[in-house]
């Protein structure tokens, strides 16, 4: 299982989201690889699930794979709910 978090530059929000998702996965005892990419790295590459801010929706239309949008990037409850749902 490969999970990728995406943001404009791969340096801020994608890393925050990555850390939050890693914490959730380890709490739930789920093993998966989580990587943070910038937008330009996404083209032509794939992963099982992508996570990004909802404000990036218009930049992420040609993604190959499942994509989940997060509204509040630091809200553990929202991220947890969406991660577990996506993994079903």
């Amino acid at each position: 299982m490969k999970i990728v978090t995406v943001c404009g530059m791969g340096f801020g929000t994608s890393l925050m989201l990555k850390m939050t998702i890693q914490d959730i996965l380890s709490q739930e005892g789920i093993s998966a690889e989580v990587e943070a990419w910038d937008l330009s790295s996404v083209k032509g590459r794939t992963a099982d699930i992508f996570f990004a801010s909802e404000d990036m929706k218009s930049n992420l239309h040609d993604i190959e794979g499942k994509i989940v949008f997060i509204k509040n990037l630091i809200d553990v409850e929202e991220v947890k709910k969406k991660v577990l749902e996506a993994l079903k």
Binding site: C7, S53, M56, S58, N72, D75
Partner: peptide
């Protein structure tokens, strides 16, 4: 420039 290019996703929480 990054906000102009990629949108207001740097608003990480309300």
């Amino acid at each position: 420039l990054s906000v102009e290019k990629y949108g207001p996703y740097i608003v990480i929480t309300p």
